[in-house]
Design a protein around this nucleic acid. Structure first.
Lengths: 197, 197, 197, 197
DNA sequence: GATGAATGAGTCTTCATTCAT
DNA sequence: GATGAATGAAGACTCATTCAT
């Protein structure tokens, strides 16, 4: 019936909405999805009622964060897929996401289609998937990624790296070194390590 | 005052302790660390008071599970490090852990030094770290892993893979394909993919 | 400071006031006095601030509705008491009120001097009471109601019937049959049923 | 699966359960079903958690009170229907219920199949209905109630009287006088007052 | 030692009311 | 005057932890 959060009209409301979203992202990032709504309100500098006026449910708040993120990511993907250097776009995106994951718990949580948040990942994630698919394709055509690598594995590696960075708190150096190994695994010119079983 | 869990004397107490540990592992695996203590008591078939007699705090229970697991893993590592084929032991261990992670949430949670549980990973994880270090060393000497790979990256990759498998629910095939890429990255004989920045 | 609701001057204000009153009557009738003010505002097609500008308190709103109703009823009573057939006016009024009670929760709530609303029934209800008293008097003089019936009982019966109809949702047939019994009890020519104790 | 509240075994638990039930009856009677659970806990002299341990939901508490009451009433009805004087049992029961209604809000609320409490009136109320039906039958055979009165009207009158007494707070004298009129209406030997429409 | 009832702080959510726009 | 966002005090309910039995 009513659209699910159509961005308020009044300036203060819009400002608060943004503040809450930021605060929530930060708090959830720091303490996980079980952080209390009060904390978020406090951090956003509003009363708790305001949080609930904007997001009637904690789930709604989570969803909104994820959606926000999705949109940003999808845009990035689209841009890189269209304009980026075929040989490096995929890796650049990989880098960016993993770095961000270290900061925002949500990034990783969303990639894992769980989080108990029942995100309507259907549409948005598909877009992301497709964008990455395009980058993979172009990278393979450019000879930057071996032919037998499939999208599923790339997504799995991306998820894993994000989750890992998030959970273990990789610093810049560790992230670079670790991803380097992954990239090497993706590049052509090495003996495949396909295991027997 | 009292040492941190001095294995009870009475037979039933010892039995209960074990039951609770099992139940807790299962329940936490299924519902995450936010599962209620009541649930665990129910599954263990004891009253809630009994759980708290054995583990005065939920954290203590978590810690005990982690310790248990750690000991099991350390034993495995030690065995593989001592007796396994230098060229494959590391990969075998990798496989085993990632597979298990898909089943037991705890495995991954512990690897991530977080879980909001402040596990005293200090001692136990060090043992694991050392064991893996030995395997890495032997693998490098056997020419199965390139020289410039360091223990930190291996642990990061392991953590990441476990978390990824856990969060996204990799099936056997996906796990195999994904890890194959990682292993290729670890093997010598490919152009290093060390990125500029 | 300000008199208790000095009928606004501006045309739109007056219109809004009426709309709110109507909406409130309908909403309270449907969901009881615990319905939210937001609902009323929505139904009235105004913002919530407007409701509170006209009625600074929820209680004030309730009171206003009751007052409105009271005035309407009092007018009816006055008319029936003056112009109606002495022998039937009382019963006609009875019928009307009970029927309405089935629809408007408020009618009954107000008759019961409670509703947790502390209605200042003082003045208005007195008017109603007097009107009904007149009708009772005339009915008794016309021989339509036995002599020993007092106003208190009539009011009690009226209250009871309204509440009953309201709570149990009497349909037309049930209302007719049930009130018939009451009327028979009020009519002369039957052995009194005054109980011993 | 589990029975809906099988009376606890431990003495203190049983005692608390009873206290809570009493407190709830009193508090709900005084302030209606919207009274807060805290109030009840306070009055019962227990912590709020205890109330929820015994009755996981406010509704459950309401239900339990109603059930209690139902059982008591049903027993009374059964007794009166079996052993009472056919000519007076119905009126005696009427008296008793209306008197009680003045004290316990719940009595009336339950009779009205509403209260927003979704009482499982199905079974229990049927028992009550039947018992009253028997009393009505016997009264009619004994010539104490006119033939054309049906069970529905009797129940409607009972509901109405209870609600009225409850809402308006009839004192002993008013109750007696008011019910006398109703009883007269039920007795044979008066011209029926069936209205035209 | 085991049991399970009691405790009470903490969480999400609602809603009357206030106030900036 | 109207609008609708912000406030914050309750209220229902959960759950780790304590303690009488």
């Amino acid at each position: 019936m009513t659209p699910p959060e159509p961005a308020p009209q009044r300036a203060d409301a819009r400002r608060n909405r943004a503040r809450i979203l930021d605060a929530a992202a930060a708090v959830f990032a720091a303490h996980g999805a079980s952080a209390s709504t009060e904390q978020i309100a406090a951090r956003a500098g509003v009363a708790i009622g305001t949080v609930f006026r904007h997001f009637p449910t904690k789930k709604d708040l989570l969803r909104a964060i994820v959606k926000d993120l999705m949109e940003r990511l999808t845009a990035e993907v689209a841009e890189l897929a269209a304009d980026g250097d075929p040989a490096t776009a995929l890796f650049a995106f990989f880098d960016r996401m993993v770095r961000e994951a270290g900061e925002k718990k949500t990034v990783a949580d969303l990639l894992a289609a769980d989080a108990g948040v029942e995100v309507p990942v259907a549409g948005p994630v598909q877009a992301l998937r497709e964008g990455i698919g395009v980058m993979l394709d172009r990278a393979q055509r450019a000879g930057a990624v071996r032919e037998d690598v499939r999208l599923d594995e790339v997504l799995a590696l991306l998820t894993a790296a994000c989750q890992g960075a998030l959970a273990a708190g990789w610093d810049d150096d560790l992230r670079r070194r670790t991803l380097a190994i992954v990239y090497t695994g993706l590049r052509p010119g090495a003996a495949s390590a396909r295991p027997a079983g």
